[in-house]
Simulated scan of single mutants.
Amino acid sequence: MEDTTQKGWRVVITCMKSALVFLAVGPLIGAFLLSTASALVNLEFSPSGLSAWVMTMVVGVPFAYVIGGIPSFLAGAIFASVVMVAKKKSTRAKVLIGAFSGAVAFTAAYIVHDKTPLTLLTNGDGMAYILTGVGLSAVVALLLRRRLHS
C-alpha cells in the first residue's frame, strides 16, 4: 500500500511541476508567437514595424499571463499526466502530446469564456488563441522532454 501511495504522490508532484513550468514559460512564448504572427501578417518590415513588434511584446506580456496563465497551467498538467500514463519516451511523442494538451486546454478556456463553441469555427480570434496555445504547449513540451520522469 505504501508503494502505491508514494507512486501516486510522485505522479501528482511531477504533474504540478510540469504545470508550473508551463505557467511560467508558456504565456511568454505565446506572446512571442502571437505578436510575431501578427507582424508577419501585416508584413511591415521597417524600423517602425520592428518598434511596433517590440512594443507589442512589452505591453502584451503582462496580458499574456492574465489571458493565458490558467490554460497554460492546465496544458502542463494534461501533458504530464498523459506522458506518465502512456509512458512515452520519444521527443516526437512528447511534442505531439504537448500540442494536444494545449489544444484541449485552450479550447476549453475559450469555450468557458465565450459560452458558445460554435463561434470557435467562425471567429478568427478564437482560432488564433487556440493555435497559440498549441504552439506554446509544443515548445514547452520540447523544453521539458528530458525533465519529465515517471
Score class of each variant (00 low, 15 high):
T5D: 14
T5F: 13
W9G: 02
R10V: 03
R10F: 09
R10I: 02
V11K: 11
V11L: 14
I13G: 11
C15N: 12
K17Q: 15
S18T: 14
A19F: 11
L20Y: 12
V21P: 09
V21W: 14
F22W: 07
A24E: 02
G26Y: 03
G30P: 01
G30R: 01
F32M: 14
F32C: 13
T36Q: 03
T36L: 14
A37V: 08
E44V: 12
F45E: 07
S46R: 08
P47C: 00
A52P: 00
W53C: 02
W53Q: 05
V54M: 15
V54C: 13
M55Q: 13
M57Y: 08
M57S: 03
V58R: 15
V58D: 13
V59I: 14
G60K: 05
V61E: 08
V61Y: 12
P62M: 06
A64K: 01
Y65A: 06
V66P: 07
I67P: 00
P71W: 01
S72R: 08
S72M: 11
F73N: 07
G76Y: 04
G76N: 06
A77F: 15
I78C: 12
F79N: 05
A80M: 05
V82K: 07
V83H: 06
M84E: 13
V85R: 12
V85G: 03
A86C: 09
K89H: 10
R92C: 08
A93Y: 07
V95P: 01
I97W: 06
I97P: 07
F100C: 10
G102H: 00
A105S: 13
A105D: 10
A108I: 15
A109Y: 07
I111Q: 02
D114W: 10
K115W: 05
K115N: 07
L118S: 14
L120V: 00
N123R: 01
G126K: 02
G126H: 01
Y129T: 00
I130F: 00
L131F: 10
T132I: 04
G133N: 03
V134T: 07
L136I: 00
A138G: 13
V140M: 02
V140Q: 03
L142P: 00
L142K: 02
L144Y: 05
R146I: 00
R146H: 12
R147E: 10
